[in-house]
Design a protein around this nucleic acid. Sequence first.
DNA 1: CCGTACTTACCGATCGTTCAGTAAACGATA
DNA 2: TATCGTTTACTGAACGATCGGTAAGTACGG
Lengths: 212, 212
Amino acid sequence: MSQPLPADQPAPRGGNGRSGRAPYDLATVLDIAVAAFNEFGYDATSMGTLAERLGTSKSAIYYHVSGKADLLRLALERGLGELEGVLSLPGAQEGPADARLEFVLRGAVRVLCEELPSVTLLLRLRGNTDLEREALARRREFDHAVAALVDESRADGTLRADVDARTTTRLIFGMINSIVEWYKPGGPLTPEQLADDVITVAFEGLHPRPSA
Amino acid sequence: MSQPLPADQPAPRGGNGRSGRAPYDLATVLDIAVAAFNEFGYDATSMGTLAERLGTSKSAIYYHVSGKADLLRLALERGLGELEGVLSLPGAQEGPADARLEFVLRGAVRVLCEELPSVTLLLRLRGNTDLEREALARRREFDHAVAALVDESRADGTLRADVDARTTTRLIFGMINSIVEWYKPGGPLTPEQLADDVITVAFEGLHPRPSA
DNA sequence: CCGTACTTACCGATCGTTCAGTAAACGATA
DNA sequence: TATCGTTTACTGAACGATCGGTAAGTACGG
């Protein structure tokens, strides 16, 4: 059960024992679980709470997943997969370094907004277990790829060189990653508009430009 | 025991029962606890782990504090107090809005670096208990004060107006708050240098300026 | 009558916390 | 200086609650 990410089961229709409600599929259980993990924190979320929110018993969850860690694994896989996918897009591999950097940053903002719950979970990991440490390692690889683009852009003269490259990368990621703390999908701010704002603030700063 | 923050007890000297080691004071227990909370997360840190790191028994901790929540409360009080202190400094209350904004942002960076453990704890709260929610409310008040400075600066024309003020404030805070995820005190990067870098990136952006 | 999707009942482990007891140091007294 | 009572700073065992997870049984559609 629940290995790589089935994405969609054949849409079960029948009723369960007690009521006319449709049975849960893995996606539903996962959505509820990730939402709860983000609300209370992974460790502070009990399987009992999850069951309560699903309207079932604790053990019913174990029919769909092998355990609490499995829920975390599936969620992290979704977020990390999408994030890594940005790097393999053509816009991240062709063209001048600063254009690729902007493309990847825009892609990161887009994935953050589209996969908000799972990426939120990913960004709050503490590395307590092997599973968490593996996810953090993959996240760090993504950071390194962006850091490499920053280095290239600095060498090209399209990025300022009076601030340390490492610091620059971290501050920019800090800005982007903080989106998960306040962005509400469906609100007035679209992911595209937010990406524009992030790029504007990151590259041009808060001070008004004569050229802009 | 352990009410507002005694700051320093009269430095006990005697040995305890089992060895020649000096007894712990509240400050030591608090330091170890906050470090562990930041490493594993508050909920994932057990009193047993704390005791192990202190080299004592679980119950010994209860001689110094009333419980796990008390350790959290004391740590949050330290971080919040320092952060709020920045707002009452003269530089935050006199002069043009953009200068006050820069002063507060520099102050926030300084407090983050100086009180790294307690501020880190503060920034990772999920609001599961009344205690946590109260701390989050105080943190939000600080954010609002900065947002007001952003509004003023925009009205003065010293901050760009083509990005939403709320978004601006959040992105800047995202940048600054992310410092707790990677800053190592005692390293080559001093708090002052870091504050300079933050101000540079925030106000002037990553693109090189003709004027700079 | 078989697979699906649960149910109730329960397990051992661990959680934060409490409690009774105590060894060592200190201050006062004689 | 020897003795005594108090305070300080713990120890070790145990508490009830809750944790993640399991075993066995079962209603229902096909």
